[in-house]
Protein backbone atom coordinates (compact mmCIF):
# COMPACT_ATOMS: atom_id res chain seq x y z
CA UNK A 1 0.00 0.00 0.00
CA UNK A 2 1.35 3.38 -0.98
CA UNK A 3 -0.88 5.27 1.39
CA UNK A 4 -2.66 3.95 4.44
CA UNK A 5 -4.93 6.22 6.43
CA UNK A 6 -6.95 5.07 9.41
CA UNK A 7 -9.25 7.24 11.49
CA UNK A 8 -7.76 10.56 10.42
CA UNK A 9 -8.98 13.57 12.36
CA UNK A 10 -8.18 17.24 11.91
CA UNK A 11 -9.33 19.68 14.57
CA UNK A 12 -9.19 23.45 14.73
CA UNK A 13 -9.16 25.41 17.95
CA UNK A 14 -11.50 28.35 17.57
CA UNK A 15 -12.57 31.06 19.97
CA UNK A 16 -15.83 29.28 20.62
CA UNK A 17 -14.37 25.82 21.15
CA UNK A 18 -12.97 23.20 18.84
CA UNK A 19 -14.14 22.43 15.35
CA UNK A 20 -13.51 19.02 13.84
CA UNK A 21 -13.09 19.46 10.09
CA UNK A 22 -12.06 15.89 9.29
CA UNK A 23 -13.85 13.35 11.44
CA UNK A 24 -12.38 9.90 11.09
CA UNK A 25 -11.41 9.27 7.49
CA UNK A 26 -9.89 5.93 6.54
CA UNK A 27 -8.61 4.94 3.14
CA UNK A 28 -5.92 2.83 1.51
CA UNK A 29 -4.41 3.77 -1.82
CA UNK A 30 -2.10 1.71 -4.01
CA UNK A 31 -0.87 2.48 -7.49
CA UNK A 32 -4.34 3.42 -8.60
CA UNK A 33 -6.44 6.44 -9.27
CA UNK A 34 -8.58 7.46 -6.34
CA UNK A 35 -11.05 10.28 -6.67
CA UNK A 36 -12.27 12.31 -3.70
CA UNK A 37 -15.41 14.32 -4.30
CA UNK A 38 -17.61 16.35 -2.03
CA UNK A 39 -18.85 19.85 -1.57
CA UNK A 40 -16.79 22.82 -0.52
CA UNK A 41 -15.67 22.56 3.08
CA UNK A 42 -16.18 18.82 3.31
CA UNK A 43 -12.52 18.34 4.21
CA UNK A 44 -11.09 17.07 0.93
CA UNK A 45 -8.11 19.40 0.85
CA UNK A 46 -7.38 18.91 4.54
CA UNK A 47 -7.32 15.12 4.12
CA UNK A 48 -4.80 15.45 1.30
CA UNK A 49 -2.78 18.04 3.17
CA UNK A 50 -2.61 15.84 6.27
CA UNK A 51 -0.79 13.25 4.22
CA UNK A 52 1.97 15.80 3.54
CA UNK A 53 1.63 17.32 7.00
CA UNK A 54 0.95 20.65 5.32
CA UNK A 55 -1.80 21.85 7.65
CA UNK A 56 -2.50 25.38 8.85
CA UNK A 57 -0.70 26.24 12.06
CA UNK A 58 -3.85 26.16 14.19
CA UNK A 59 -4.84 22.66 13.06
CA UNK A 60 -4.33 19.54 15.17
CA UNK A 61 -3.77 16.24 13.43
CA UNK A 62 -4.46 12.82 14.90
CA UNK A 63 -4.83 9.39 13.36
CA UNK A 64 -4.62 5.76 14.24
CA UNK A 65 -2.41 5.23 11.24
CA UNK A 66 -1.05 7.60 8.61
CA UNK A 67 1.67 6.15 6.44
CA UNK A 68 3.18 6.92 3.07
CA UNK A 69 5.03 3.96 1.56
CA UNK A 70 5.64 2.54 5.02
CA UNK A 71 6.86 5.84 6.48
CA UNK A 72 4.92 6.96 9.51
CA UNK A 73 3.92 10.49 8.54
CA UNK A 74 2.60 11.31 12.01
CA UNK A 75 5.98 10.91 13.66
CA UNK A 76 8.44 11.45 10.83
CA UNK A 77 10.97 14.24 11.31
CA UNK A 78 10.97 17.36 9.15
CA UNK A 79 13.86 16.03 7.00
CA UNK A 80 11.97 12.92 6.01
CA UNK A 81 8.88 14.98 5.31
CA UNK A 82 10.85 17.23 3.00
CA UNK A 83 11.97 14.29 0.87
CA UNK A 84 8.35 13.16 0.65
CA UNK A 85 6.91 16.55 -0.17
CA UNK A 86 7.72 17.60 -3.66
CA UNK A 87 10.07 14.73 -4.49
CA UNK A 88 8.26 11.48 -3.72
CA UNK A 89 4.80 12.97 -3.71
CA UNK A 90 3.72 15.88 -5.89
CA UNK A 91 0.96 18.16 -4.70
CA UNK A 92 -0.97 20.31 -7.17
CA UNK A 93 -2.57 22.95 -4.98
CA UNK A 94 -5.95 24.50 -5.37
CA UNK A 95 -5.92 28.18 -6.47
CA UNK A 96 -3.11 28.14 -9.01
CA UNK A 97 -2.79 31.89 -9.27
CA UNK A 98 -2.42 32.17 -5.52
CA UNK A 99 0.34 29.62 -5.54
CA UNK A 100 2.44 31.18 -8.27
CA UNK A 101 4.84 34.00 -7.50
CA UNK A 102 3.33 37.11 -9.12
CA UNK A 103 6.65 38.84 -9.77
CA UNK A 104 8.58 35.96 -11.34
CA UNK A 105 8.14 34.73 -14.92
CA UNK A 106 6.47 31.39 -15.58
CA UNK A 107 9.60 30.04 -17.21
CA UNK A 108 11.80 30.80 -14.21
CA UNK A 109 9.35 29.27 -11.77
CA UNK A 110 9.07 26.02 -13.71
CA UNK A 111 12.82 25.89 -14.29
CA UNK A 112 13.47 26.50 -10.59
CA UNK A 113 11.10 23.68 -9.67
CA UNK A 114 12.97 21.39 -12.00
CA UNK A 115 16.40 22.41 -10.77
CA UNK A 116 15.51 21.98 -7.12
CA UNK A 117 14.94 18.32 -7.75
CA UNK A 118 17.16 17.49 -10.67
CA UNK A 119 20.03 19.92 -10.28
CA UNK A 120 21.81 20.81 -13.50
CA UNK A 121 22.50 24.06 -15.25
CA UNK A 122 20.31 26.99 -16.06
CA UNK A 123 20.12 26.24 -19.76
CA UNK A 124 19.29 22.63 -19.18
CA UNK A 125 16.53 23.59 -16.77
CA UNK A 126 15.12 26.00 -19.30
CA UNK A 127 14.95 23.28 -21.94
CA UNK A 128 13.26 20.99 -19.45
CA UNK A 129 10.76 23.70 -18.49
CA UNK A 130 9.80 24.24 -22.12
CA UNK A 131 9.34 20.52 -22.50
CA UNK A 132 7.17 20.29 -19.39
CA UNK A 133 4.95 23.14 -20.55
CA UNK A 134 4.63 21.42 -23.88
CA UNK A 135 3.56 18.24 -22.10
CA UNK A 136 0.64 20.05 -20.48
CA UNK A 137 -0.40 21.24 -23.95
CA UNK A 138 0.55 24.87 -23.63
CA UNK A 139 0.92 26.27 -27.10
CA UNK A 140 4.06 28.19 -27.83
CA UNK A 141 5.80 27.34 -24.52
CA UNK A 142 8.79 29.58 -25.30
CA UNK A 143 6.56 32.61 -25.42
CA UNK A 144 4.60 31.67 -22.30
CA UNK A 145 7.82 31.16 -20.34
CA UNK A 146 8.48 34.88 -20.62
CA UNK A 147 5.08 35.84 -19.22
CA UNK A 148 4.16 36.70 -15.63
CA UNK A 149 1.31 34.85 -13.88
CA UNK A 150 -1.19 37.68 -14.43
CA UNK A 151 -0.48 37.54 -18.14
CA UNK A 152 -1.65 33.97 -18.64
CA UNK A 153 -5.23 32.79 -18.72
CA UNK A 154 -6.86 30.96 -15.80
CA UNK A 155 -6.51 27.57 -17.44
CA UNK A 156 -2.89 28.20 -18.41
CA UNK A 157 -2.04 29.01 -14.79
CA UNK A 158 -3.51 25.73 -13.72
CA UNK A 159 -1.47 23.86 -16.30
CA UNK A 160 1.71 25.63 -15.22
CA UNK A 161 1.14 24.31 -11.70
CA UNK A 162 0.70 20.80 -13.07
CA UNK A 163 3.91 21.11 -15.08
CA UNK A 164 5.83 22.12 -11.95
CA UNK A 165 4.61 19.07 -10.10
CA UNK A 166 5.51 16.69 -12.88
CA UNK A 167 9.13 17.83 -12.76
CA UNK A 168 10.41 15.52 -10.01
CA UNK A 169 8.77 12.26 -11.21
CA UNK A 170 6.73 11.67 -8.06
CA UNK A 171 5.46 8.28 -6.88
CA UNK A 172 2.21 9.78 -5.72
CA UNK A 173 0.47 12.73 -7.26
CA UNK A 174 -2.15 14.61 -5.30
CA UNK A 175 -4.14 16.89 -7.55
CA UNK A 176 -6.50 19.30 -5.77
CA UNK A 177 -9.01 20.52 -8.36
CA UNK A 178 -6.45 20.38 -11.16
CA UNK A 179 -8.83 20.98 -14.04
CA UNK A 180 -11.59 23.18 -12.62
CA UNK A 181 -10.70 26.09 -14.93
CA UNK A 182 -10.07 24.06 -18.07
CA UNK A 183 -12.28 23.48 -21.05
CA UNK A 184 -13.30 19.98 -22.01
CA UNK A 185 -10.59 19.45 -24.63
CA UNK A 186 -7.65 20.53 -22.50
CA UNK A 187 -9.13 18.78 -19.48
CA UNK A 188 -9.25 15.58 -21.46
CA UNK A 189 -5.62 16.05 -22.49
CA UNK A 190 -4.47 16.67 -18.94
CA UNK A 191 -6.32 13.67 -17.63
CA UNK A 192 -4.83 11.57 -20.40
CA UNK A 193 -1.39 12.81 -19.38
CA UNK A 194 -1.97 11.86 -15.75
CA UNK A 195 -3.41 8.52 -16.78
CA UNK A 196 -0.32 7.89 -18.82
CA UNK A 197 1.93 8.73 -15.85
CA UNK A 198 0.01 6.44 -13.55
CA UNK A 199 0.19 3.44 -15.83
CA UNK A 200 3.68 4.02 -17.21
CA UNK A 201 5.45 4.95 -14.00
CA UNK A 202 3.29 2.95 -11.64
CA UNK A 203 2.29 6.10 -9.80
CA UNK A 204 -0.56 6.57 -7.33
CA UNK A 205 -2.99 9.41 -7.92
CA UNK A 206 -5.42 11.19 -5.64
CA UNK A 207 -7.71 13.40 -7.65
CA UNK A 208 -9.76 15.89 -5.64
CA UNK A 209 -12.67 17.42 -7.42
CA UNK A 210 -16.30 18.32 -7.07
CA UNK A 211 -17.10 17.11 -10.54
CA UNK A 212 -18.56 13.69 -9.82
CA UNK A 213 -19.09 12.49 -13.39
CA UNK A 214 -15.58 13.51 -14.40
CA UNK A 215 -14.01 11.73 -11.46
CA UNK A 216 -15.99 8.57 -11.91
CA UNK A 217 -15.04 8.41 -15.57
CA UNK A 218 -11.40 8.88 -14.87
CA UNK A 219 -10.64 7.18 -11.54
CA UNK A 220 -10.70 3.57 -10.43
CA UNK A 221 -12.45 4.36 -7.18
CA UNK A 222 -14.35 7.37 -5.86
CA UNK A 223 -14.72 8.37 -2.22
CA UNK A 224 -17.60 10.77 -1.53
CA UNK A 225 -17.00 13.07 1.44
CA UNK A 226 -19.53 15.01 3.42
CA UNK A 227 -18.84 17.12 6.51
CA UNK A 228 -15.47 15.55 7.23
CA UNK A 229 -16.47 11.93 6.64
CA UNK A 230 -16.41 9.51 3.76
CA UNK A 231 -20.07 8.70 3.31
CA UNK A 232 -19.72 6.34 0.37
CA UNK A 233 -16.98 4.67 -1.70
CA UNK A 234 -17.84 3.62 -5.21
CA UNK A 235 -16.07 1.72 -7.92
CA UNK A 236 -15.70 3.69 -11.12
CA UNK A 237 -18.64 3.52 -13.46
CA UNK A 238 -20.92 2.58 -10.61
CA UNK A 239 -22.01 6.13 -10.03
CA UNK A 240 -25.46 5.36 -11.32
CA UNK A 241 -25.80 2.89 -8.48
CA UNK A 242 -24.83 5.39 -5.78
CA UNK A 243 -27.09 4.95 -2.78
CA UNK A 244 -26.31 7.79 -0.43
CA UNK A 245 -28.83 10.61 -0.83
CA UNK A 246 -26.00 13.12 -0.74
CA UNK A 247 -24.24 11.51 -3.70
CA UNK A 248 -27.55 11.37 -5.57
CA UNK A 249 -28.13 15.03 -4.76
CA UNK A 250 -24.71 16.00 -6.09
CA UNK A 251 -25.44 14.19 -9.33
CA UNK A 252 -28.84 15.74 -9.61
CA UNK A 253 -27.84 19.38 -9.35
CA UNK A 254 -25.59 19.31 -12.43
CA UNK A 255 -26.88 21.21 -15.43
CA UNK A 256 -27.11 18.93 -18.41
CA UNK A 257 -26.57 19.58 -22.07
CA UNK A 258 -28.90 16.84 -23.18
CA UNK A 259 -31.64 17.21 -20.58
CA UNK A 260 -32.32 20.92 -20.13
CA UNK A 261 -34.22 22.05 -17.05
CA UNK A 262 -35.76 25.36 -16.17
CA UNK A 263 -34.37 25.39 -12.62
CA UNK A 264 -31.66 23.32 -11.07
CA UNK A 265 -32.54 21.43 -7.92
CA UNK A 266 -30.39 22.41 -4.96
CA UNK A 267 -29.24 20.10 -2.22
CA UNK A 268 -31.49 19.88 0.80
CA UNK A 269 -29.12 18.77 3.53
CA UNK A 270 -30.28 16.21 6.02
CA UNK A 271 -29.00 16.25 9.58
CA UNK A 272 -28.95 12.48 9.51
CA UNK A 273 -26.06 12.56 7.01
CA UNK A 274 -23.83 13.82 9.77
CA UNK A 275 -24.15 10.56 11.68
CA UNK A 276 -21.69 7.83 10.82
Amino acid sequence: MLVDIADLRVTFATRTGTFEAVRGVSMRIGTEKLGIVGESGSGKSLTARSLMRLLPANARLSAERLTFDGIDVLNADERTMRTIRGRRAGFILQDPKYSLNPVMTIGRQVAEAWRTHKGGGRREAEEAAADLLDQVRIRDPRHVMGLYPHEVSGGMGQRVMIAMMLAPDPELLIADEPTSALDATVQAEILRLMEDLVTRRGMGLILISHDLPLVSHFCDRVAVMYAGRVVETLAAGELARARHPYTRGLLDCLPSLTHPRERLPVLARDAAWLQP
Binding site: E39, G154, E177, H210, L250, C253, L254, P255, V266
Partner: peptide
Protein backbone atom coordinates in the same frame (compact mmCIF):
# COMPACT_ATOMS: atom_id res chain seq x y z
CA UNK B 1 -18.92 28.98 -11.01
CA UNK B 2 -15.80 27.16 -12.13
CA UNK B 3 -14.16 27.40 -8.70
CA UNK B 4 -17.28 26.26 -6.89
CA UNK B 5 -18.67 22.85 -6.13
CA UNK B 6 -21.68 21.56 -8.03
CA UNK B 7 -24.25 22.13 -5.30
CA UNK B 8 -23.17 25.75 -4.93
CA UNK B 9 -22.94 26.05 -8.70
CA UNK B 10 -26.61 25.14 -8.95
CA UNK B 11 -27.48 27.80 -6.35
CA UNK B 12 -25.45 30.47 -8.12
CA UNK B 13 -26.89 29.58 -11.54
CA UNK B 14 -30.44 29.79 -10.15
Amino acid sequence: TSALDVSVQAEILN
